[in-house]
Design a protein around this nucleic acid. Structure first.
Lengths: 180, 180
DNA sequence: TATAATCGAGACACGGTGTCCTGTAAAGTG
DNA sequence: CACTTTACAGGACACCGTGTCTCGATTATA
């Protein structure tokens, strides 16, 4: 086990090419063949390091989300506004594509939960617990309802993910906390 | 414009074959070629009447949902329990597959909203408006949160869609209605 | 220098899609 | 009873993305 080391340059070129193509053509229209050509790399190099297109984009997404990590010390409305702003753009389309693909790939579904969805749930839980006063209701259900709205709108696109939604949700959560 | 009429027998055979294969292999693993073979029909017959696999399954789903239409005169908890029971089985998997495919097919997304999601939203709205007392909060947001949980769990599969969830949501909605 | 793992590049089989064609069957019309 | 029109089952075909394999060249360690 010595050999030539993995080229970090090739890895970055591939991930950046994948993101570029996702923005231009949309996640579902991106192919591994196209990524290799856009990155100027051999196709085998992709298959050596990632199992599928989804696996590759999941790595690109985690890199991107972790780099632009929100302070998370914020209050609920700020947290939601920043989360929705991220989800409303190209990142949201890619993540929606990953969720779509996870419907036919249980292993991807597992990684998606572990690397993206789980951590975001933990972050929202921390924000809710720090609220004055913390809502008395079942926190898990509250998280499901808040992120449920986000995913529902992200996938079904019947309404926007904007600052108004962040405000409305915050108001509603406050009402729940205020009731006996 | 006279000619041989469309074979209702072939139509039913195709839709039933599609549902059978979805239960056996899962929606994403079903192919138009496989459906034609299972139904004992020519492939051109499928392409003549449906544009895509999703289009075909959407028709099968609407047929099925309309045939097993819930009374909808029920209270919120009953309505949710019946809805979740339907979504928790094979129907839910197919619908999740349709939503997944809609991420790469805007026309399908449109039909999905018009034929399945929209009507269910209307039904839930009617139930909420009939509640004593009707929740004062924004009904659209409430619908988004309730069906949001359902879709979130249906797609992400981190928790079940069961009677307990129906009860918890009903309790939470009652608390919202009780607060000023 | 020898070994080992990488790199870009291309060839290949496989499978699903969507179109086209053939011969046959079932309706309406003269 | 012909004639026209459309649907039917079945097969052939090109197209495209996937995933595996091979090749010679490159870049590290021992």
């Amino acid at each position: 086990m010595v050999g030539r080391p993995r080229s970090e340059q090739a890895r970055r070129a591939i991930l950046e090419a994948a993101l570029r193509l996702c923005e231009r053509d949309g996640y579902p229209n991106v192919t591994l063949k196209g990524i290799a050509e856009e990155a100027g790399t051999g196709r085998q190099t992709l298959y050596r390091w990632w199992d599928t297109k989804a696996d590759l984009l999941l790595e690109a997404m985690t890199d991107l989300v972790e780099s632009s990590r929100a302070p998370s010390q914020a209050d609920l409305e700020t947290f939601l506004r920043e989360t929705f702003a991220l989800a409303d753009g190209a990142v949201g389309r890619v993540v929606a594509g990953l969720m779509a693909e996870a419907q036919s790939d249980p292993a991807l579904a597992e990684r998606l939960r572990a690397r993206l969805i789980g951590p975001r749930r933990d972050a929202l839980r921390a924000v809710l617990e720090r609220m004055p006063p913390p809502p008395g209701a079942d926190l898990d259900l509250l998280i499901d309802m808040i992120f449920g709205v986000m995913w529902y709108r992200l996938l079904n696109r019947h309404a926007p993910l904007d600052a108004a939604l962040a405000e409305d949700i915050t108001t509603l959560v406050a009402r729940i906390g205020a009731s006996p």
